[in-house]
């Protein structure tokens, strides 16, 4: 029973990791940029909600912060990152790493290193009793549902919308995209906007579930990265599966001994790297 419980909790946490990861995966898929500041943007959104929620209610704070994240993504991409794309693979990496350091230290300056959390009141402690020993928290369940819905939404967006198709076209061959009238720079801006929007959702839910500090960005990035690699590069559903596998791994590890949780997740990642480097659900050739 303990193990069933651990697996279910891990599964639900996996939804959170998928939220943290899908933007990272999308940005890489379209521009081949690995956004080293991805986790920091998640934490930034969580702080944004904390700050706004002091003046207004939580829902409104979230509704206000997420579009700001998207705008921020669009303008950082068009203003700074697009310029670096032509300067080799190193430049965007260095710039996003610099973003990471800037965000962490700005947050430290404004909010100090004290732990914070996004207060969701009674909702945080609500849970559904399944059997005598098995309870599912409302918040983890919500996180999981949002994770699945976002993956689904992104899938439909990329498959059936005009801009979604343009994103995939641009990812395949930016030169050819240019020739059918697609402004790649705009498309890249949109990709980063969506990426940071998703990172923001992940960050806010993360902040509702656990306490966080400005230094938590890197660990969020690492979990996101492990989800992407476990799932398989370039596959949205793979990222969701990767997040779930990572979540379950951590939760089983933590069941053995609380301090082993994160380590167990890392070991799952290493095992995938050794035995199935293409990930669990790799992108099909040409697809």
């Amino acid at each position: 029973m303990i193990w069933t419980n651990a697996i279910i909790q891990g599964l639900l946490t996996g939804g959170l990791y998928a939220l943290l990861a899908c933007g990272l995966s999308l940005i890489f898929g379209v521009m081949r940029i690995v956004n080293l500041s991805h986790g920091d943007f998640s934490i930034l959104a969580a702080y944004g909600v904390v700050a706004l929620a002091m003046h207004t209610n939580l829902i409104l704070a979230i509704v206000l912060v997420l579009p700001v994240m998207a705008f921020l993504g669009y303008f950082l991409q068009r203003g700074i990152l697009n310029r670096s794309l032509s300067k080799g693979a190193l430049a965007p990496l260095l710039i996003t790493f610099a973003f990471s350091i800037i965000i962490q230290n700005l947050l430290l300056q404004i909010f100090s290193s004290d732990n914070r959390s996004v207060q969701s009141g009674r909702f945080a402690s609500m849970s559904f009793k399944i059997t005598k020993n098995l309870q599912i928290g409302a918040l983890p369940l919500l996180t999981f549902i949002v994770g699945v819905l976002l993956t689904l939404g992104l899938h439909y967006f990329l498959t059936y919308s005009r801009v979604g198709r343009a994103l995939r076209a641009s990812s395949d061959d930016p030169g050819a995209a240019d020739l059918v009238g697609i402004n790649n720079k705009h498309i890249y801006g949109i990709a980063t906007a969506i990426g940071l929007f998703a990172a923001g959702i992940g960050g806010v839910l993360f902040g509702m579930r656990t306490q966080f500090a400005p230094s938590f960005g890197p660990i969020a990035l690492i979990f996101a990265f492990e989800s992407v690699i476990i799932g398989g590069l370039g596959s949205l559903w793979g990222t969701l599966i990767g997040g779930i596998v990572l979540g379950i791994g951590q939760s089983i590890g933590a069941q053995i001994q609380p301090s082993y949780g994160v380590l167990a997740g890392h070991l799952v990642f290493i095992a995938i790297l050794i035995f199935r480097p293409q990930g669990l659900m790799p992108k099909q050739k040409g697809k």
């Binding site: 005009r162 198709r165 343009a166 995939r168 076209a169 990812s171 395949d172 061959d173 030169g175 050819a176 995209a177 240019d178 020739l179 059918v180 009238g181 697609i182 402004n183 790649n184 040409g286 697809k287």
Partner: peptide
């Protein structure tokens, strides 16, 4: 990309078809 909007389209050397998109999707793009 603005010349496409103005009415000039190029069928490039090597065709440059989007390899992960279906025929229909290539046309829609």
């Amino acid at each position: 990309y603005k010349r496409v909007r103005a009415g000039i389209s190029l069928v490039p050397e090597g065709r440059r078809i989007f390899s992960s998109l279906t025929v229909e999707e290539n046309l829609k793009v």
